[in-house]
Every structure is written in C-alpha cells, then in structure tokens.
Design a protein around this nucleic acid. Structure first.
Lengths: 217, 217
DNA sequence: GGGATCGTGTTGACATCGTCAACATTGTGG
DNA sequence: CCACAATGTTGACGATGTCAACACGATCCC
C-alpha cells in the first residue's frame, strides 16, 4: 500500500521503513515539544509515522525506554551547546559565563525536553547505561571548564567535581524557575541568570571580606 | 453495609464519609510517597478509602486538581519547616543556613512529593490560585529572611527578591540533584549543601578580591 | 537457487485508567 | 414533613500501554 512518499533511493534504509528508530525519536521529541510529556502517546506517534502502534516495540522495550532515548539525545545536544559556548567564548571566565547562559537558554527553549531529562520519567538506576553516560558527558563538560579555570587561578582550588555540582545546581535551579513560569516574564530568566553568574563569582555576603582566609592547598 | 469501622461520634463529619477531601489528600500523598507520582490512580485511592472510584469528583474537578491539592499542602509544609528553621536558628546567618538545610532535607525526605510540586504536573497559570498563593508564601519566607539579613548588613543590599530567587535556585538545584540520584550517596546531598552554602557566601572566585567595588546604593 | 532464520511490522485483544451521565442516598432548611 | 442540595454509586465509554500471534522481508547457509 502507499508507504507514503518515502522508501526512495536512501542508501541507509535497513529494512521496511527507513530507519524507524530515528523517526520515532524525532517524532516523539516533536510531539513532546508541541504537547508536553503527558501528551505523548505511542499510538499517535506511530500513526504520524505511517506505522502501526506496536511497531516501536521492535526498537524500544517500553514507553520509558523511548523517553530515555529522547532524554539521551537531549543530554547530547546540551553537551554540544555547552562545549560550543566554552570553546567559542575563549575558554576563559567569559566563556564560562557563556556556558551558563547556553545552559539556561537550552532549558528555556526546550522546556518539555528538559523536563524529560530531569523530571524523573527515566530511572536513574543504571537501567539505561547510554543515558547515564550521556548525562555524565554533559556534566563532564562543566567539570573540564572549571578545571581549566582552576589552572588559570581564576576560580578557587576546591574539589573540582564538588564545585561543578554546585554550579550545576545553580544553573539547573535558574532554568527550573524559568521553565515553571515562576519568573515575571519569559525574559526574566536571562536577567536572573546574569545576576546569578555575578553572585556565583562573588557570593552574597556583604562586600567586606578581606583577602585573608586564603587556602590554596 | 459495613461502612468499615468509621462513622462514629466524630463531630466534624459533614456527610456520609468523614471528611473525604482530607482523606483523599492524605491517601493520595501516601500513595505518591510509596509508588511515585505515576503510580497514583484514582480508583486505587478510592478503594483504599472504602469509597467508590468517582467519589472524589465531588471534591476535586480533576486528577490534576487533586495533584494540585497535594502540591499545595507540600508548599504549606515546606514553608512551615523553613520558618521554623529560621526562627529556631536565631534569625541570623546560622538560621539562614539552617533554612537551606531544611529545604534540602524536605526535598530529599519527600522526593515524590517534591516532584509533584515542581515537576510541572500542575499548571502554573493561575488555574489554582490556592496553589500559587501557597507557593508564593513559601518563597516569601525566604525573602523575609534575606531582608532581615540585609538589615543587619550580613548580606549584600541587592534587590531582595532577585537575591531570593538566586538562593532559591541554588537550594532547588541541590535538592534536584539529590533527588535524581545523581549524587554519590544519599548523604552526599548534605555534604553538597554544606559546600553550596559556603560558596553561596563567598562565591567561587579565587580569594583575591579586595574590599573595593563596594556598592551600597 | 531454495529454504531456514532472524529482523521488522501488523492485527487482535485485554486490562487499566480517567471521566461522564444517570441514579441513589443522606443531611439540612423551610 | 418535604423539597433540595450535597455527597456517593453504578454503568459505560474512549483512550492507552502492552502482550501474543501472525505476516512480510531480507539475509545466510547449503
């Protein structure tokens, strides 16, 4: 029957449908982006791909597995944007703040996708090794940047991973506030992020700290 | 029929079942706590209360409305614990840090409940005025504490709400990391929180900032 | 070249869920 | 005492995730 206007001269067309797994991930992400995570239904994305409802069970064990795949790709994209911001920004302090802005920008631009990544829809318990690996990769981008800043004595010499977790918490929190609409306007996120980066540097204490209390080792 | 061993001399027993709305909220929270948000089913909590499945539609318009109620109570509890930590801690810097610890403790002790509050299951768009009011109340506790610290010149004189948002983002981010199991051990949250409070005070910059750059107005 | 075999997609069916409409029951006010 | 509103029940419906059985298609092995 009319397999729609597909199935053409594409070289990588393994079997019946041209790379269904790819299409499933794309279509799922599109649906999530349009209608939110709750609006995702397996039957609909099957129909939208011109394929039956249970076809995806040959590529994903579960609905959660599909969501895990979407989350995995989200972490991959996020890492790419973080690394790009870091490298294009000159790998200095400005680049670091550019990373923070890129993080929040990603979250605000793709709120539903971001929620799939962090909303607890996927088991963090190593059920999906690829997911945890990709998430760790995105985090590693932040760790690497912080380590570079430490080498240049721009930031404190604390335990890098611990400091990275702190920074991650800050940007994650700002992104969450922005996504949940708990900020005045949509553009309020960027203003809050600017302020957060400032306070991230100097802290919130009243500015009377002398240069004592140095602890380099 | 055996209405179970209830319906006794309780004074506040408006109609057939003794305060069903209260029971629904409690049972829903218990189920969520035990099986997560996804495991909540209206039929099951009805059965667990010895009541039919559609009984709750007399008290909540929707499943989302029930979840909104659970979230509302979560914000109320959270605010109470925040205020308690602040007041019992002496309303000083130590009390402020105690507030942060209390926040994260609440989130880690009730991860599923916390997720209902922030997981996007409820519309932030003023659909539930009581929910937004209670959430604002919890946030206000933080604003009040920060304002007090500002009066005592313990923290910077920045815009209080903006600084409160920043602090909220930090504790929210730390809590999220802890809930998602992205931290080594369960007790890793408290260690990260301790570190986060330290860096919240002093920032992450290398400690060479002179006392210049003061900006009091 | 022709079956065996595995990968891939389809159909049918089922249990479960949220929700609505209609009905029953219970407490309250005139 | 009786209408009435508040509260709870039953039946039913559409939608959904998922499994079992089957059908098609490519590839491999002799």
């Amino acid at each position: 029957m009319p397999r729609s206007t597909r199935a053409a001269r594409k070289p990588d067309r393994p079997y019946h449908h041209g790379n269904l797994r790819r299409g499933l991930l794309d279509e799922a992400l599109a649906t999530i982006r349009a209608e939110g995570v709750e609006g995702l239904t397996l039957r609909e994305i099957g129909a939208r791909l011109g394929v039956s409802r249970t076809a995806l069970y040959r590529h994903f064990a579960d609905k959660r597995a599909l969501l895990a795949g979407v989350a995995t790709e989200g972490f991959r994209t996020l890492r790419q944007q973080l690394v790009a911001a870091w490298e294009e920004g000159g790998r200095g302090r400005a680049a670091f703040e550019s990373m923070g802005a890129a993080y929040v920008r990603f979250a605000v631009a793709n709120p539903s996708h971001y929620r799939v990544m962090f909303g607890g829809f996927v088991n963090p318990k190593a059920c999906e090794p690829e997911l945890t690996a990709e998430a760790a990769g995105a985090f590693q981008a932040l760790v690497d940047a912080l380590a570079a800043l430490q080498r240049d004595a721009i930031v404190r010499g604390d335990d890098t991973v611990k400091m990275a977790r702190f920074v991650w918490a800050v940007v994650h929190g700002v992104a969450m506030l922005g996504i949940d609409g708990q900020l005045p306007e949509p553009c309020g996120v960027e203003e809050l992020m600017r302020y957060a980066l400032e306070r991230l540097r100097t802290g919130i204490d009243a500015a009377e700290r002398a240069s004592g209390r140095r602890r380099r080792h």
